[in-house]
Structure formats: structure tokens, C-alpha cells
Design a protein around this nucleic acid. Structure first.
Length: 351
DNA sequence: AATGAGGTCAACCGCGTACGG
DNA sequence: TCCGTACGCGGTTGACCTCAT
């Protein structure tokens, strides 16, 4: 039979989170850092399962999350990465540091997939100008429309591939890593048409409330009703942001040797965006027991690779730094088949 | 104004994997 | 090495919203 439920169904709340629950979770994580989710419901009194707490934190409450308003560059990145990696949303999200995998997945399913389908239709019409393609868009009900149509050869139906998923991913990652190295060894600025700090163009005036803003809204109320903490709401939020900024700085240090000449790269856009916050935060870091490994649990594995040097490398850790992918990500002429056609043996030699 | 179709997205579910004992 | 379980991921759901009729 199936595995037993992850948590006791009786007395465990489900559904949307209330502001009070958010406050409770945020204040606990402020004091203890993310991770050890099992203990969260017990220690906070939240009537939620640990999984729900983790999800709420990583997808909504975690600082540094940008919501909605995907830029054109982000769109392109998602499309390119999805074509290359398939529906590996966590891996894709690691190249869009302010986006959650859930957000990217939703955006893909609701916007990009349709967009690409339309584009494909157009190209189909061009290719088969006089051919009758009928019933291509049959009347499917709402559910069947979801997920099952793929706009790229490598997405969705991974089970149809004879190779194991693990093997396939490994191969893809090796290809990517190799390509990244090739790029790094033959940098050619002229061929790069990089966006100008796309992420830094995103301002806090976005019509979507950022997670930090959400927390900031919540915490004053919490402070009024609680005497346990002496933190002000803004300090509380800023503290978490400081932690993330330190994260970012480490990423710069590690990736910059390969990023020379890419000063307008995305990673710097990301950093610039956050340095605005960083400038305002130099005080009251109450995450004294908030170790790097704790931090790394709040970010995806790909992101945490920049922090946790002692951890055992995971498969996705073989991904090249973002800056190395930019070249082909933003080069419309780049052919992904070039990447995919490289043999595994070559890759083995390379490493 | 009512209603239903379609869109959006936060949250859940189930599975695979990692990890500790 | 094996086993139990916590974690993380991707697929899916359903509540809520907008818009057309």
C-alpha cells in the first residue's frame, strides 16, 4: 500500500496561511533559522505539518523573493533553461535567484507554455503552408490542458525516455558544465547581447508585494501582541535580508574569476538589486546561531553550493555558474543541439 | 445581474533521495 | 548494509479572480 501520510491528518491545518501563522513561522525562523522543519510545528504551536511550514517559508516568506512581473530576460532564461533541462524547476530556479521553483513552474504552465505553443503554431503554419492540420487543438477539458502538452523535446514526459532520470540529468549537467567551461575559455564579448542588469530594474514598486514587505506588514501587529521579542519589525526583516546579502557576496567572490568582462551580467544585476538593501542593513543581526548550513537550507541546492563547501557535492552542483550560461542564454542564435550533441565521452575526458 | 469559462497561483500530494542510526 | 524517516522536487489541485456572454 501507499506510504502513510507525512503528518497526522487529525488536528493538522491545511489550506491558505493566515497572517498570524506567517508571523509565528517567521519569528521562529528568525530565532532559529530555517531547517529542522520537523520541530517547527511543535515549537511554534502551529497546527501545520512540517512540510507545509517549509513550503510556506521557501515559496513565500523567505526574504529576497521577487513575485510576479517576470521580465523579458527572465522569460528568455526560463524558456532556454526549460528547453535544456526539462521541467527541473528547482534547477532552473537556481539561475533566477529571486524566483522560487514554484513560481517559475506556475509561470511556465500558465504563460510560457501557451506562448511557445502559439509560436510553434505560427512556425507550423509557415512550414506547412498548404497543409491542413486539423484537430490539433482539440477540445480538451480544463484538466487535460494542464501539463500534458510539451513545447520542447526534453520536457514533461520524462518517463518516455529509456534512460533513467538520474542518468539523463547527469548527462545534461555534464554537457552544461562542459559548455560552460568552453565558454569560459573562449570569452567573446562582442557576441554577447546581454541585458542591462535586468533584475536590477525590478523595483520595490512592483504591483506584487514582496515577501519582505509581507513580513513587514505582519510583524508590527505581531509586535503589538507579543512581548517576547524586542526587535522592531523592520529590524526583523532586515536581519534576514542581511543574511541573504552575505550569501550573495560569497557568490560574487566565487564566480567572479570566470565572469570577467560580464559586468552587466545577471548575477550583478541581482547583486546590485540586493546591495540596495545591504547598504541599509548593518545592524542587529540576531541570527547569531544562524550558520551557513542553516542558510543553505533555505535556498536551492544549486544556490547553496556557493556556501557549503564542506557538503558532499550533489548532482546539480555540477552546473556552471550563471555568468557562464549567459552567453548562450541570451544569444538567440545559440543552438542547444550543439550542447546536446557533445558526447559523454568527450565530457569524461574533459573532466 | 447572473453565470460559466478560463486564468492564476498558493498549497497539497506522492514519490525519490539523502541521511542518520 | 539495511531501514526508517525527513527533506526536496515536480505534478496536480482547487479556491479565487477576471472577463465575456
Amino acid at each position: 500500500m501507499g506510504r502513510p501520510p507525512c503528518c497526522d491528518k487529525i488536528g493538522v491545518k491545511k489550506g491558505p496561511w493566515t497572517p498570524e501563522e506567517d508571523i509565528s513561522l517567521v519569528s521562529y525562523i528568525q530565532q532559529n533559522g530555517p531547517g529542522n522543519w520537523r520541530s517547527v510545528p511543535t515549537n511554534t504551536g502551529l497546527l501545520r505539518c512540517s512540510k507545509s511550514c517549509r513550503l510556506r517559508w521557501t515559496n513565500y516568506l523567505r526574504p529576497g523573493i521577487k513575485r510576479g512581473n517576470f521580465s523579458e530576460q527572465e522569460e528568455k532564461m526560463i524558456i532556454h533553461l526549460q528547453a535544456l533541462l526539462g521541467n527541473r524547476w528547482a534547477a532552473i530556479a537556481s539561475y533566477l535567484p529571486q524566483r522560487t521553483d514554484n513560481d517559475i513552474k506556475n509561470y511556465w504552465n500558465t504563460h510560457l507554455k501557451k506562448k511557445l505553443e502559439k509560436l510553434n503554431e505560427i512556425s507550423d503554419d509557415e512550414n506547412h503552408h498548404h497543409h491542413h492540420h486539423h484537430n490539433h487543438h482539440h477540445h480538451h477539458n480544463r484538466r487535460s490542458k494542464r501539463c500534458h502538452s510539451s513545447t520542447s523535446s526534453s520536457s514533461c514526459d520524462q518517463t518516455s525516455i529509456s534512460k533513467g532520470q538520474w542518468e539523463r540529468r547527469l548527462q545534461t549537467d555534464i554537457h552544461m558544465a562542459k559548455q560552460a567551461l568552453c565558454d569560459a575559455l573562449s570569452l567573446d564579448n562582442k557576441s554577447i547581447n546581454l541585458p542591462k542588469s535586468p533584475l536590477s530594474n525590478q523595483t520595490s514598486s512592483s504591483s506584487y508585494a514582496s515577501s519582505a514587505e509581507n513580513i513587514a506588514k505582519l510583524l508590527p501587529n505581531w509586535m503589538n501582541s507579543s512581548k517576547k521579542s524586542s526587535q522592531t519589525s523592520s529590524e526583523s526583516v532586515e536581519t534576514t535580508q542581511t543574511t541573504q546579502c552575505s550569501l550573495i557576496n560569497q557568490q560574487v567572490m566565487i564566480t567572479s574569476p570566470l565572469s570577467e568582462g560580464y559586468n552587466n551580467s545577471i548575477q550583478f544585476g541581482y547583486i546590485n538589486n540586493n546591495s540596495l538593501i545591504h547598504n541599509n542593513i548593518q545592524k542587529n543581526n540576531n541570527y547569531s546561531n544562524y550558520s551557513n548550513s542553516d542558510v543553505s537550507q533555505s535556498v536551492s541546492p544549486e544556490r547553496s553550493m556557493f556556501l557549503d563547501h564542506e557538503s558532499k557535492p550533489k548532482m546539480e552542483d555540477q552546473m556552471p555558474p550563471l555568468s557562464l550560461l549567459e552567453k548562450w542564454l541570451f544569444d538567440e542564435a545559440a543552438t542547444q543541439s550543439d550542447l546536446m550533441n557533445m558526447s559523454l565521452e568527450e565530457s569524461d575526458d574533459f573532466f
